[in-house]
Design a protein around this nucleic acid. Structure first.
Length: 820
DNA sequence: GACCTGCTGCGGGCTG
């Protein structure tokens, strides 16, 4: 490739910093300077920011006239980041590079944190480059002069694109990009992404449907990042429980590793789990006070900032965290990462491993601490995934009409739009490539009249059509819209603070309603006593030494990824017949032998069904090993199909490995399997819609959709509306819209989201297809097996409180040992 | 030989 002048300057800059001028940086610079767009796939800490930022500056310098222009050109570069927290670091880096290149470029930040003064300044004169979140970018489009603001924009960079793409925030970004390309067809768009399974698709989503292929490139960093995976093993497999997800039994071993390391991050799957680990370690090893910290999303921002800072300055030995530290600033001191419990996907595991050895060429090491015995299989599977570099896809969100409705109103609040033009523009976005006129007309109706069933209510008439343009005239409507933009919908939370005023974090309404004054709970790594609740704030005081219950949050459970599940199926199948030398499997051997003895371990060509009878009734266990969401869908499907043969009701339970149908009647699976296609994919969707309370599931989903689409105003800042009220009004809207309209796009979307995300329809179909080719093995067991026991416990847990659960498990224990 | 489940992320006018 011929070296351009710009290319040489970039190269010199890298050399002057004594940095290795890596192949991907060369490639990216050259492609950018040649006017291309694309995607850069490089690990964090590899200098990928500079591989774009420096060429951008060069391009600017080259374009400078001899005499500098008197008037500034305004905004030329947008740098989109999913995390506010990343913006300050970026700003520093970018400004430093400007200084080094002797260029008086101004770089600014525009996020929710940006002060009013700075906003006003930006309104008068935008900086040359702006670091921004997708939400703030949408807010810029709600201003009257937005096309003027973006007139001279020539480059947009989307950082951590893999992180945005799979969510509705990604769709927001797609829509904004489509608009920016419309304003300036020459716009160069670059994405920066970690490695995911569908990189090509990621680029397509970023660049939109009309992008010319010859102008796009994917640039992969050829960094052989080494990742070492080591399991933390118990002396005996008996140490590990059959079921359970906390993993604290191996706390001593974990502490040993922490002690041998400089700085350790311990990743847990839930906030409650991180609190348990903190409490367990501090009780057993009081010397960790002061050098151990907690980090999760419900802790106060100030505390989290302190933890991040202390981690950076090597003041902390260990931090116990959740996904809250998956991304974010470089923590160079971290040399060890421990994952407690299944990470559920290989990509997440790799991402977390990368938090250690955060420099090019340095090996990352991650320890896996299994939380129950069967997770030893996952340990082996994870390692296999890492070695073979198998990573999950991030499927982009499509047909999100709620996000589109919001976007249309945003534009109407801003400069207004011509519907034909906007329709063209929106079809350029990957997520709306198949949108048709009928859907579009419905959306136009929705934003102007509030959909056919709501026409009598004025508050849903938001947008007016004036001289062919769709605009929002009312100040009040504009204000309320701007106050509720974005796609992240959360429950109402209450802030927790000490009497003397220090804020600890936030808990959910549903948790607080259980509390009485004097109750003690464990939160933010300490025991606190509930004092009172006033104006959405929970006041507490220290309760040293007292034991209390643990804060719980209503989140969602992550399901095992299909890539990881398939490794697990294979590992299990070969565990007995072709045992490998993996030490994890050696540990697990006694348990697998017990499974083999009481039932079987299925080969990959087999589907195992276990049936047994206990005092609770007749159990059917089925083990597709497909992750809990698919199992949820399958259990619903099977329960429905069985109930059509004869009237029968089941209670359902599931985990990542299998599911249970429990009834007070015996079902002869062998007979039924002969006659009925229980696992057929035929009428799958119909059966599911008939079977479950699909309406209930859709209703719950609808709450988020209605919020995003602007049907429910969540209140002015500082003034809160209770979750219950929001839930009630969304459920009312759902009922009205379903009843009086045949094809309400938002209601349909709710059903679609239930199928796609809650029940993982596509994956379920694949699994059912696989089952169709498998041999069904039905085993009657006298006692629950290592496979089935955890599912039973799971069901009990949902029905009973924890004390009662303990009693029940004791009873079960007695019952089954008596049978011996 | 069997206990502790529930991730992350953003944003908020106008006027004088």
């Amino acid at each position: 490739m011929a070296k351009s002048r710009g290319h040489i300057i970039v190269e010199q800059w890298f050399k002057s910093k004594n940095w290795k001028w890596a192949a991907f940086q060369k490639e990216a610079s050259a492609a950018y300077l040649n006017g291309k767009s694309g995607l850069i796939n490089a690990p964090t800490g590899s200098g990928k920011t500079y591989s774009l930022w420096i060429p951008i500056l060069i391009r600017h310098i080259n374009a400078l006239p001899e005499k500098p222009l008197k008037t500034r050109k305004g905004l030329q570069v947008l740098w989109i980041t999913p995390l506010r927290a990343l913006s300050k670091d970026l700003l520093r880096n970018m400004e430093t590079a400007c200084l080094e290149m002797n260029l008086s470029w101004e770089v600014g930040i525009r996020t929710g944190d940006t002060a009013t003064k700075e906003r006003t300044r930006q309104k008068k004169q935008m900086p040359d480059a702006l670091i921004i979140t997708p939400e703030s970018l949408h807010l810029l489009f709600s201003q009257k002069n937005s096309s003027e603001v973006f007139k001279n924009l020539h480059t947009v960079v989307v950082d951590e694109w893999h992180e945005l793409m799979g969510s509705k925030r990604g769709v927001q970004t797609e829509l904004a990009l489509a608009r920016l390309r419309n304003i300036n067809p020459e716009l160069q768009t670059w994405g920066i992404s970690a490695t995911i399974g569908n990189l090509n698709e990621a680029m397509q989503v970023l660049l939109g449907m009309k992008f010319k292929e010859e102008n796009a490139v994917i640039i992969k960093a050829d960094t052989n990042k080494k990742i070492l995976v080591e399991s933390i093993l118990p002396e005996k497999v008996e140490t590990l429980p059959w079921s359970g997800y906390m993993g604290i039994r191996l706390a001593d071993k974990v502490v040993q590793i922490v002690n041998q390391s400089n700085t350790t991050l311990i990743f847990t799957n839930t906030r409650a789990q991180s609190e348990i680990w903190y409490r367990t370690i501090i009780e057993k090893y009081p010397e960790f006070a002061g050098i151990m910290a907690l980090h999760h999303a419900s802790l106060d921002r100030e505390i989290r900032d302190w933890v991040e800072e202390a981690l950076h300055n090597e003041k902390l030995k260990v931090v116990i965290c959740t996904s809250s530290l998956d991304l974010g600033v470089d923590f160079r001191p971290v040399d060890t990462v421990i994952q407690v419990g299944s990470p559920k996907s290989i990509a997440r595991f790799v991402q977390r491993a990368g938090r250690s050895g955060h420099r090019p060429g340095v090996t990352s090491k991650i320890y896996f601490c299994p939380a129950n015995a069967l997770e030893l299989i996952e340990a082996v599977s994870l390692r296999e995934g890492v070695v073979n570099n198998v990573l999950e896809d991030r499927p982009p969100v499509v047909h999100a009409f709620d996000v589109l409705a919001q976007w249309m109103i945003t534009l109407a609040v801003g400069e207004g739009f011509d519907e034909q033009q906007l329709f063209e523009e929106v079809s350029d976005a990957y997520g709306y490539q198949y949108i048709n006129r009928q859907e579009w007309e419905w959306l136009l109706g929705y934003i102007t009249t509030g959909s056919p069933s709501l026409t009598v209510y004025d508050e849903y008439k938001k947008v007016e059509r004036i001289d062919g343009r769709y605009v929002v005239k009312s100040r009040r409507i504009a204000l309320r819209h701007v106050l509720s933009m974005g796609t992240i919908v959360s429950d109402t939370t209450l802030r927790v603070k000490f009497q003397h005023g220090k804020y600890l974090g936030a808990v959910e309404e549903s948790f607080v309603t259980k509390l009485k004054p004097g109750d003690v709970f464990f939160f933010a790594g300490m025991s606190v006593e509930f004092v009172r609740i006033h104006e959405m704030t929970v006041t507490v005081k220290k309760a040293e030494g007292k034991k209390g219950f643990l804060v719980s949050w209503a989140g969602s459970r992550m399901a095992l990824s299909s890539q990881l599940s398939s490794f697990i199926r294979e590992r299990l199948a070969s565990s007995i017949e072709n045992p490998t030398h993996e030490k994890e499997l050696a540990k697990l051997k006694p348990l697998l032998e017990l499974q083999q003895e009481r039932s079987i371990i299925p080969q990959t060509s087999e589907l195992l069904i276990e049936q047994c009878e206990t005092r609770e009734g007749y159990h059917i266990f089925i083990f597709p090993f497909e992750g809990r969401l698919v199992h949820e869908g399958m259990s619903i499907l099977l329960a429905y199909r069985l109930s059509r043969l004869k009237p029968i009701t089941f209670s359902l339970a599931m985990n990542d490995y299998g599911f249970e149908l429990l009834s007070d009647q015996y079902v002869d699976m062998k007979e039924i399997m002969k006659e009925t296609a229980l696992f057929s994919t035929e009428h799958l969707v119909d059966d599911i819609y008939h079977s479950v309370n699909a309406t209930e599931m859709a209703k719950r989903k609808f709450r988020e959709i209605a919020s995003i689409a602007g049907l429910m105003f969540q209140g002015y800042p500082g003034q809160h509306i209770k979750t219950k009220q929001i839930q009630a009004s969304s459920s009312l809207l759902f009922t009205v819209m379903s009843k009086y309209e045949d094809s309400n796009l938002l209601v349909n979307q709710a059903y679609q989201e239930v199928l796609t995300y809650q029940l993982e329809e596509i994956r379920m179909r694949k699994a059912l297809d696989r089952i169709a080719t498998q041999k069904i093995i039905i085993r009657k067991t006298i006692k629950p097996t290592p496979f089935s026991f955890p599912i039973m416990v799971d069901r009990l847990r949902e029905q009973l409180t924890s004390e009662k659960l303990e009693d029940r498990i004791q009873k079960m224990l007695k019952q089954y040992s008596n049978a011996d």
